[in-house]
C-alpha cells in the first residue's frame, strides 16, 4: 500500500485516495469552438509516460480535495504532491 502525501493532510495510506488521471489537462474555455481534432486531443489523448508522470489524485476518504502528484510509473514512488492550480514542480529543484 502506497503512502501518499496529501498536500493538506500529510502522508496517508493509499486506500484513502482515488486516482484521477493525467494532470494539467485543462478543459477548454469554449469547447464548442474546438475542431474535432483538438477536441479529440483533449478528450482522449494522454501522455502515459514511462517515468515521472503528473497525475491527479483525490483524498477521497480524507479531506476530499483533488491535488496533483508526480509519480514515477516505473517504481510507483511519489516524487512530489502539490495543490490543484499550482504549477508542476521543477524536478531538479525537488531532488536538489
Amino acid at each position: 500500500m502506497l503512502l501518499i502525501t496529501c498536500p493538506y493532510c500529510g502522508p496517508r495510506p493509499e486506500i484513502e485516495f482515488a486516482h484521477g488521471g493525467e494532470a494539467h489537462i485543462a478543459r477548454p474555455q469554449d469547447p464548442s469552438s474546438l475542431g474535432v481534432e483538438d477536441w479529440t486531443e483533449f478528450l482522449y489523448m494522454r501522455a502515459n509516460p514511462k517515468g515521472v508522470h503528473a497525475e491527479r489524485w483525490r483524498h477521497l476518504h480524507g479531506c476530499a480535495r483533488f491535488f496533483n502528484a508526480l509519480r514515477d510509473t516505473t517504481t510507483d514512488q511519489f516524487v512530489a504532491t502539490y495543490k490543484t492550480g499550482e504549477p508542476r514542480p521543477d524536478l531538479t529543484a525537488v531532488t536538489a
Partner: peptide, 8 residues
C-alpha cells in the same frame, strides 16, 4: 488528542 479526520 484533538485530531479528527475522515478515513476508512
Amino acid at each position: 488528542v484533538g485530531m479528527c479526520t475522515r478515513t476508512l
